[in-house]
Simulated assay, not measured.
Amino acid sequence: MRKSVLFCLCLGCLLGAAPIPERKVEARLKEVARLQGVRGNQLLGYGVVVGLNGTGDKDQTKFTVQTLTNLMARQGISVSPSSVKVKNVASVMVTADLPAFAKPGQRIDVTVSSTGDATSLAGGTLLMAPLQGADGQTYAVGQGPLLVGGFAAGGGGGGATKNHPTVGRVPDGALVEREVAGNFNDRRFLRYSLVEEDFTTTVRVVHSINEELGMEVAKPLDSRTVEVLVPEGFQGRVVELVARLENLPVQLQPRARVVVNEKTGTVILGTDVKIGAVSIVQGGLSIVVSSTPLVSQPTSLSQGKTVAGAKKDVNATEEKAKIASLEPGVTVGRMVEMLNGLGVTPRDLVAILQAIKDAGALNAELRVL
């Protein structure tokens, strides 16, 4: 068993920390905000893939047999489910995204995923599968040959698999049959949702829109939402209004942020993120307990019994402590360079950053995944 004591962190004086200069970054409105109501819709359906080379669902997958017999019955062929034993058919779930403003006759891609115990969908063809929305209405119908970026092969007790052969796609495999109701040009107001909530950015978006249109038509609702009243000159021409607004430059105020992933030991950070004065002491104590099996064998002609035992050894190794002192206002990028020079591992760096944040010396948002 191994136990590790990673580090001990001592906080220095924070009063001399240098201020963080504000960087000016501009982006277009359509890059920092999304227009409410302009989005796709998810579709879901159930279907059957045929033409598989013995890699379909097995006999114990009852719903595949029932689906196949029902399909054949609709084609005028009556077959008993108990007499159907095929391995070239697989039941699948079919998913797709219906784009905003999609019209009947437009084609969209579909994704096909096995629901039974099929080993591969390679070479199969999806039969006509209705795709429904959350309201239960059918908005598209999918059908066509599958593209599978993998394979599965086996024999003689062995096998090989590449990628994920039980999921495939049908490019342009669904035909849109129904459009989502609504007339975009009849809107009386627009609402923009910022990708990342920020009061300062919201106010700047409102100022940019009002300045562009020359009237007070935009107002902030909260730190993420901006509402725009459609001016009389754009009534019935909302598309033109959106096209005019989406390219407006908006000045952003970037956040100082450090993102760490404890599971993988990954750290993503901006080199201009500042920290206060700290002293870092990092050391490791490793304890290893090993066990060696032993057997006690009695001598011949004795009345003793053979007994199994174990020899246990305990070894403790303490590494030499690594010490780093940082001046006020040093960047996190510089700190990482120093710690890497001391041989600190990525996982130890994650723990050190968390401790610096808890001590109040990290002037940035710490996001742990």
Rank of each mutant, 00 (worst) to 15 (best):
225 T>Q: 15
156 G>Y: 08
179 E>L: 11
179 E>M: 12
153 A>I: 14
192 Y>R: 00
196 E>M: 08
162 K>D: 06
223 S>K: 04
155 G>V: 09
180 V>F: 02
157 G>R: 05
212 E>G: 02
158 G>L: 10
219 K>G: 00
255 R>K: 13
158 G>C: 02
177 E>V: 15
153 A>L: 12
215 M>F: 09
196 E>S: 12
157 G>I: 08
241 L>R: 04
163 N>D: 14
158 G>D: 10
196 E>H: 12
175 L>M: 12
259 V>L: 12
181 A>Q: 15
171 P>C: 04
256 A>Q: 14
194 L>C: 06
205 V>M: 10
193 S>D: 15
215 M>L: 12
217 V>F: 06
154 G>M: 06
209 I>V: 12
259 V>Y: 08
207 H>F: 07
256 A>N: 13
208 S>R: 15
173 G>N: 07
164 H>E: 11
176 V>T: 00
210 N>A: 05
255 R>I: 04
199 F>G: 04
256 A>P: 01
246 E>K: 13
257 R>I: 14
208 S>G: 04
186 D>R: 09
202 T>E: 04
242 V>Y: 00
156 G>L: 02
201 T>N: 06
191 R>M: 11
239 V>P: 00
210 N>P: 02
241 L>W: 05
169 R>P: 02
214 G>F: 01
163 N>H: 09
202 T>A: 14
158 G>V: 11
222 D>M: 07
217 V>I: 04
200 T>V: 13
242 V>W: 00
184 F>Y: 13
235 Q>E: 15
158 G>E: 13
172 D>W: 06
152 A>P: 02
206 V>A: 09
162 K>Q: 09
232 E>H: 10
178 R>E: 11
165 P>D: 06
209 I>N: 01
232 E>S: 13
246 E>M: 08
154 G>E: 08
164 H>C: 03
251 Q>M: 11
208 S>D: 04
189 F>M: 08
201 T>V: 15
259 V>D: 06
237 R>K: 14
222 D>G: 13
187 R>P: 01
233 G>F: 06
227 E>C: 03
211 E>D: 14
256 A>L: 11
176 V>N: 00
164 H>A: 08
171 P>G: 04
236 G>A: 01
225 T>K: 02
184 F>G: 01
215 M>P: 03
258 V>K: 07
152 A>S: 15
222 D>Y: 13
231 P>Y: 08
248 L>M: 05
237 R>W: 00
213 L>M: 03
216 E>T: 13
255 R>C: 03
150 G>K: 02
241 L>M: 08
176 V>E: 00
248 L>G: 00
227 E>K: 10
169 R>C: 01
204 R>A: 12
175 L>F: 00
213 L>Q: 05
231 P>W: 09
253 Q>T: 12
219 K>N: 05
213 L>A: 01
